[in-house]
Amino acid sequence: MSSFIRKRAFASLISLIGLVVIVFFLSRLTGDPTDLFLPIEAPEEMRQQFRELNGLNDPLLVQFWNYLGDIVRLDFGVSLRRAQPAIDVVLPAFLWTLQLAAITMALVTGAAIVVGSLAAFRVGGIFDRIASLTSLIGASAPDFWVAIVAIVVFAVGLGWLPTSGTGTVWHWILPVGVLFIRPFGLIVQVVRGSMISALSSGYVKTARAKGVKSRAIIFVHALRNAMLPVITVIGDQAAALLNGAVIVETIFGFPGVGKLMIDSVLQRDFNVVLATIMITALAIFIMNLLIDLTYALLDPRIRY
């Protein structure tokens, strides 16, 4: 198990380095950072001094090496627009997004498992039909549209909920609710499909022959077997949320990583953009590792 984690960590390190290479050289391709940092009318001596100070006169490879060293210390340079270290801008935003993603995915997972399992238990029954239809609608609904309609209805029309911000629990309801819909629809479908095959398996027949109650057959015997493909999709959806739910965060003015990234790109605040990319990449790597470990936890046949 620990050798598996080491191996995976090593593989991820390589992809992270690849990511750094791409990110570093791409940002250099956009031109001399001096133009970005200094006012357009800055004299040449000032520019020269700035380059010297920031090591921009060194060969590109040396610069890259220094950049790597800084990243290891979580030093992504200074935010151009906020005059504070980029990491100090990114981390709080990332924590907001992490909370949003965690709350949403916890709700999605719980609800989708229950709904999908019950739908699978009586295929073609009334509950199954309602669940299948709603989940299909949910999986197909465009979130920017849902978000705007939700604001129009619940915030503007009914006045029940705030339109944006993060102050109270009420502020969380709309973003979480909107983000909930699509992964919920998708995961209900996956749970349902996976549970249908688990419920028609031999071991479920055995359980019925043993006299096990229906609820235990669904949630003890079948569910754990049906979870592997579900976990994969959950991980996939969670990764998408961690990346920052750009549109939803922007619409609801939620101070998360997605909104930060968009703002920083628009402001050409490259150090912040790079920092968000690296932090979310790291988070997604850790999450994938957790998912692999969950596989092994759920299924004793999987051993690393």
Partner: peptide, 14 residues
Amino acid sequence: AMIFQDPLSHLNPV
């Protein structure tokens, strides 16, 4: 009580 043809698929793997 009942036993089945293929015990591998009729025992719960997990």
